[in-house]
Design a binder for these strands. Structure first.
Length: 108
DNA sequence: TTCCTGACTTTAC
DNA sequence: AGTAAAGCCAGGA
C-alpha cells in the first residue's frame, strides 16, 4: 500500500513507528535518523500527536525519549498509561521508571 | 493567508 | 562536565 510519505513527514513517521514490533521500543531521534533526518526528532513526536492512535497502527507508546524516559504528560493521559502498555507487551522498566532500552531498543 | 507553537536532539562554549 | 542555544517541518488558530 502506498503508505509511503502519503502525508509528508508525518506519514513516514507513522509508517516507521508502525513497523516497531511488540515488546520493543524506539526513540524519536532513532526514528528521525531512520527517516534520514536526525534533525527532525521533534516532528517525530509531533507526528505521534497527530497519529490515528494505537488502533490506527501507530503504537506511539512504543516511542520514548532518547534517555529512555516517557512523555512528561502529553501522551495517553500520563506516562503511567504508557508504562502499563509497554509492560503489557513485555518491555522491562528500570528502577528509575525508564524503559529498559538496553534490551528493548528497536534495531533494524 | 500569516504567525506561532510544538511528544526532541545535537552541537557549541 | 554542565549549561545554553539553534534547527527542522507541519498543523492549528
Amino acid at each position: 500500500m502506498a503508505d509511503n510519505a502519503r502525508e509528508g513527514f508525518f506519514g513516514r513517521c507513522y509508517a516507521l513507528v508502525r513497523q516497531i514490533p511488540r515488546g520493543r521500543v524506539s526513540t524519536y531521534g532513532q526514528i528521525a535518523s531512520m527517516l534520514g533526518e536526525p534533525r527532525k526528532s521533534r516532528f517525530v513526536g509531533f507526528a505521534m500527536h497527530g497519529s490515528p492512535g494505537v488502533a490506527g497502527g501507530v503504537p506511539c507508546h512504543r516511542v520514548v525519549f532518547k534517555d529512555g524516559t516517557l512523555a512528561p504528560g502529553f501522551a495517553f493521559g500520563g506516562p503511567d498509561a504508557q508504562r502499563g502498555l509497554l509492560e503489557s507487551e513485555g518491555v522491562g522498566f528500570l528502577e528509575d521508571g525508564r524503559v529498559d532500552m538496553a534490551n528493548h531498543l528497536w534495531e533494524v
